[in-house]
């Protein structure tokens, strides 16, 4: 999609400005100090301002030159993979290492359009056995196999 403005630059400019503002706001309560005796807030504020300024330059450039819209965003993959990671983080203690890992592998396989139940199940089984053999048996990592929710401890 051709537009008069370069949307990628405009959007990234806006993103950098937003991040600059967010971090700048976070430095509010930090003591600034002076250039000679810098406080903990000096460098962060300087950098936040710089980020905002760079964002502004990118934004203005984006408004001056034509470009393309970012396209083909993989919303499905984005959602499913983030979900799989968060599930692992959430589940590794209460459910245990292997169940959390298995579910995460299976769920993330759903992110592909080429997903088939058989492959995903096989993949999950292989990964769980591999992780058990290498990390638990082989290297002795202190990871609980089964968590308290599944009768482990």
């Amino acid at each position: 999609m051709k537009t008069i403005i370069n949307s990628r630059d405009v959007l990234s400019g806006l993103l950098f400005i937003a991040l600059g503002l967010l971090f700048g706001w976070q430095t509010q309560e930090l003591p600034m100090g002076t250039a000679v005796r810098m406080g903990p807030g000096y460098f962060p504020l300087l950098l936040s301002a710089l980020l905002g300024l760079l964002g502004l330059i990118i934004l203005i450039n984006g408004l001056r030159f034509p470009g393309e819209m970012p396209s083909g965003i993989a919303w499905r993959a984005l959602l499913i993979i983030t979900g799989a990671l968060v599930f692992f983080g959430f589940g590794v203690r209460p459910l245990g290492f292997l169940p959390a890992l298995g579910v995460s592998v299976f769920v993330s396989a759903l992110a592909s359009r080429l997903f088939t139940f058989r492959t995903a199940l096989l993949n999950t089984a292989v990964m769980v056995v591999f992780a058990w053999a290498v990390f638990i048996k082989g290297l002795g990592l202190p990871l609980p196999l089964l968590g308290p929710w599944l009768g482990g401890y």
Partner: peptide, 28 residues
């Protein structure tokens, strides 16, 4: 095939990131 490989990559990333500090925060 990539659709077979990427779930395994995700699994290793989880294990690797988690095992450094044994802290789920790093996974998030």
């Amino acid at each position: 095939p990539y659709h077979v490989m990427f779930p395994a990559i995700i699994a290793f990333c989880c294990i690797g990131v988690y095992s450094v500090n044994n802290n789920v925060f790093d996974v998030y």
